[in-house]
Write a protein that binds this DNA or RNA. Sequence first.
DNA 1: CTCATCGCTTACAATTTTGTAAGTTCATTC
DNA 2: GAATGAACTTACAAAATTGTAAGCGATGAG
Lengths: 116, 116
Amino acid sequence: MRKTASTNYINEQTLHGLCDAAYTLSVLSGRWKLTLLVKLKEGKKRFSELKDQIPAITERVLALQLKELEKSGLILKQKSTPKGQLYSYELTSLGISLDQVIQSLSDWGIAHNPTV
Amino acid sequence: MRKTASTNYINEQTLHGLCDAAYTLSVLSGRWKLTLLVKLKEGKKRFSELKDQIPAITERVLALQLKELEKSGLILKQKSTPKGQLYSYELTSLGISLDQVIQSLSDWGIAHNPTV
DNA sequence: CTCATCGCTTACAATTTTGTAAGTTCATTC
DNA sequence: GAATGAACTTACAAAATTGTAAGCGATGAG
C-alpha cells in the first residue's frame, strides 16, 4: 500500500499538479500497462486470454496492473455473460483516447530505440 | 546498481525489444526527468540553477537523473568556460526531438488530469 | 591563506514495485 | 461428487527507486 505521508508520494502529487505530462506518464507507468492497452485495443479479452498472450506476466502482476488501469479509468471490467462469473476487460473511451499518446511514444521509439 | 540477471531486468529488456513505446516510456521515467527536460528546453543551465528551480529535488537525485538523461543521449554536459570547472547541461538534438512526445503527453494530461 | 560555494559522491534507510509460490472460491465438466 | 479451470488473493522475498544526511575536492572571493 502506498504511504500517503511519504516524501515520495508528496513529491509525486505535487508534480502532477504542476506538470500534466507527468500525470499522463504516471498513468502509463507500470511494467505491462502499455502491453495491456495494446492488447485490449484489439478487443475485449478475459483475464486468462491476457495471461496467455503475455507469457512473461504473472497472475499477481496481471491482476495488479488491471486494477490500476481500471482505477485510472482506462479500462472496464464487466461480466462476460449476465449470469456467469466470467469477466472481460475492455478499453473505455478514455483508454481509447490514449491511443494518440501511445502512437507518439511508439513513433519516437521506432526512430530511436537501440534495443531492437 | 541494476542487476542484469534479475527477472525484472530481463522482462524490461524483452519488452523494449517488442514495444517501441515501452522503450520511449523508460527513457522518460524517473521522478524529475520530464521536469528537467522542460527546464532545459528554456536553455542550458548549470547544476545549481536546476537545483534552485526545482526546490523539491535533492542534489543526489538531481545528479542521478542528469546522469541517466545523459546516458540516454537526451542531454549533454559541457564546461561552461574552456578553462574553468563549471559545467552546464543542455538538450541534445535527440532531447529536442522528444518535444513532440512530451507535448502529446501534456495534451492528454491537460484534458484528463484530475489532480489539478 | 582562509573561507565559502559549486558540483558532486558516499553511506545508509525508507519506500515502492515486481517476482515467487501457494492457496482460495465459484462454477463447470466428467 | 471429484476433478478441473477461471480469476483471483495472500504471504513473502527480491529488486529498484527515492530520500536523508553528511562529506569531499577544486576553484574563487576576500
